[in-house]
């Protein structure tokens, strides 16, 4: 076995010095970062009117609120209590169904819009820079303006109701999915495209037979992911009068109908859970199907 030979003292001292300097530098950088962060926190706290004392004084209210929305469930009268807690179940289930349909239609219409635009926005399929630029900017505007702002404007233009929520969700989804889709398209294998172009296929034929088979399962997976997000988004559309269960929740919270708040929240959480699980299964199935091909 070889023995470890200690370094010559000069080199050892050198190394120790270098190490200490490195550590000191790292510490200095850390402290500077911390100071910058602290300044930003103070500035942001000033801008956002953070009042820790109010929070400390009222944090009891938060726990009390949570305590109040928890329904009274006595083991002896469990059936009656649950029935009383969920007194509005038929109405809520109908609204929940409406919410899910809104999310579905919004996702579907948005996916169709994103599907049409993504091929135009993809750099490897469209040579015209102006067309591509226009498509990309349009998608960006759709994506950056939150769906609830679209809903606010549409409610005035189209009137109250779930249709408005669907349109708002659809426009936002077009922007979000169009960007993701076009990124998928930009990453495809270009050989089939060249092959089809070589045989004289038109642009639409090239997209149909060379691009589509490569991207479809990814598109479906992204659309399902968006559906999950849209279920959450559709849940609050009612806050501005655009349909779904949000309106009931808003009324319950604003008017302090405590047990209704917990009942509706629980319904929403359970629905979101179920949808998340379902789409996750489907997405794994889709991606798995692609892997075996």
């Amino acid at each position: 076995m070889r023995r470890l030979t200690p370094l010559p003292p000069q080199r050892a001292a050198d190394l120790v010095g270098r190490y200490a300097a490195e550590r000191a530098g790292a510490r200095r950088r850390f402290l500077i970062g911390l100071a910058v962060m602290a300044v930003l926190v103070v500035l942001a706290g000033y801008a956002a009117e953070v009042r820790p004392l109010v929070l400390a004084a009222n944090i009891g209210k938060f726990t009390a609120y949570l305590g109040q929305i928890v329904p009274v469930l006595r083991p002896a009268h469990l059936g009656e209590d649950v029935a009383e807690w969920y007194w509005g179940l038929p109405k809520w289930l109908k609204l929940l169904g409406e919410t899910l349909l809104m999310a579905y239609l919004g996702t579907l219409l948005g996916a169709v819009g994103g599907f049409v635009l993504c091929f135009v926005a993809a750099g490897n399929l469209v040579r015209s820079a102006a067309l591509r630029f226009a498509a990309k900017r349009y998608l960006e505007i759709c994506r950056t303006v939150p769906e609830i702002v679209f809903a606010l404007i549409f409610v005035i233009a189209f009137g109250l109701g779930p249709m408005v929520g669907v349109l708002a969700l659809a426009i936002h989804t077009t922007g979000a999915l169009g960007k993701l889709f076009s990124e998928v398209v930009e990453n495809i294998d270009m050989k089939p495209v060249e092959g089809l172009t070589g045989t004289g296929a038109s642009w639409v034929e090239t997209v149909r037979f060379a691009v589509l088979p490569q991207v479809l399962s990814n598109f479906a997976s992204y659309a399902l992911l968006r559906f999950e997000i849209n279920v959450r988004g559709a849940g609050v559309m009612g806050f501005v009068g655009a349909g779904g269960i949000g309106q009931e929740l808003l009324i319950a919270i604003r008017n302090f109908y405590y047990s209704d708040v917990s009942a509706i929240l629980l319904l929403i959480v359970l629905t979101v859970f179920a949808i998340d699980l379902g789409t996750e299964k489907l997405r794994h199935h889709l991606i798995g199907a692609e892997g075996t091909q």
């Binding site: 938060f62 609120y65 609830i148 959450r232 988004g233 849940g235 609050v236 806050f239 929740l249 808003l250 919270i253 604003r254 929240l265 929403i268 959480v269 979101v272 859970f273 998340d276």
Partner: peptide, 10 residues
Amino acid sequence: SVDVLIWALI
């Protein structure tokens, strides 16, 4: 799974 607007209301 609770949206940010709902948290805001609470």
